[in-house]
Amino acid sequence: MPVIEVNNLRKVYGDITAVKDISFKVESGEIFGIVGPNGAGKTTTIEMMEGIRTPDSGTISILGLHPLKDSKKLRQRVGMQLQQAALPDRLKVWEAFDMFSQFYERFVDAQELLESVQLSEKRNAYFSQLSGGQKQRLFVALALINDPELVFLDELTTGLDPHARRSMWDMISGLRERGKTVVLSTHYMEEAEFLCDRVAIFHKGELLALDSVNNLINELDEDKRVEITLIEAIDTAKLNELETVSEVTRKGVELIVRGSSNRLVVDVVETLANMGAEIRTLRIKEANLEDVFLTKTGSSYRTVNNHSSNAGDTES
């Protein structure tokens, strides 16, 4: 049985349809990513699954339960990190864990959780004394206080520096190893590529695509591009003759070879080796999730994302 089953979910705010007839399933033990630019409907969808927002239509089943009717039962078994949340300014970090642990039937050791997000030396600090990134890590750790089967993480690395983001990624990967199901939203495509088993691409309230990152990229059928810098220029006729090569561009010692087959790189390197050419650098350019987004929407992810960021950082 899937951990989450969402059918024809819909949510309207005034004139704006934030979520339009979205359906998907999340399987046990996977890291499921909801990606898309700001305003795509990611947070609205997550908050409806969490039972803190009421859908206008459609059904949601979480661990076989109803998010609103069974909310008390579900909250014992589910962990949530909200995009925006706070604690009282003068509450100490350890007190927050002490307080929340009392709300649950079972809870895990706070010290271990604090260590896992590198906050153990901040345990006596007031909430107001934490930096943005530290608060973010605190809320991720708090989402795990009840050892949940399912964790919702909404924009978990927004505002983190690259190093903190990396260690957060390691921590999330660790959750998969412990058999947890994770649903996360992010507007960083590379985060979804790194972490997620499957990715749902949201755009303007619609679900554009849902599959593993590899499948989404392979479906694009996009040319691979091999960029090579040689020690000495060579005649590229032999490369052109290769079946797997569709195009060769040469500029002095620099070559760009295009083709769609998975044999492209092997063929090119083999041919160059047979010709006795020496390679200084070789780079393989692959399509990524941003290209998937571009293909599905016809607009560049960065443009869309920057545009909506300027309009306002938070999603409604």
């Binding site: 909250r75 909200l82 706070a86």
Partner: peptide, 17 residues
């Protein structure tokens, strides 16, 4: 203030009624 700063929101995510 607890509502405005989303403190209530965080409590709402726990089983506390």
């Amino acid at each position: 203030a607890q509502r405005e700063h989303k403190i209530l929101r965080r409590l709402q995510c726990s089983p506390i009624r």
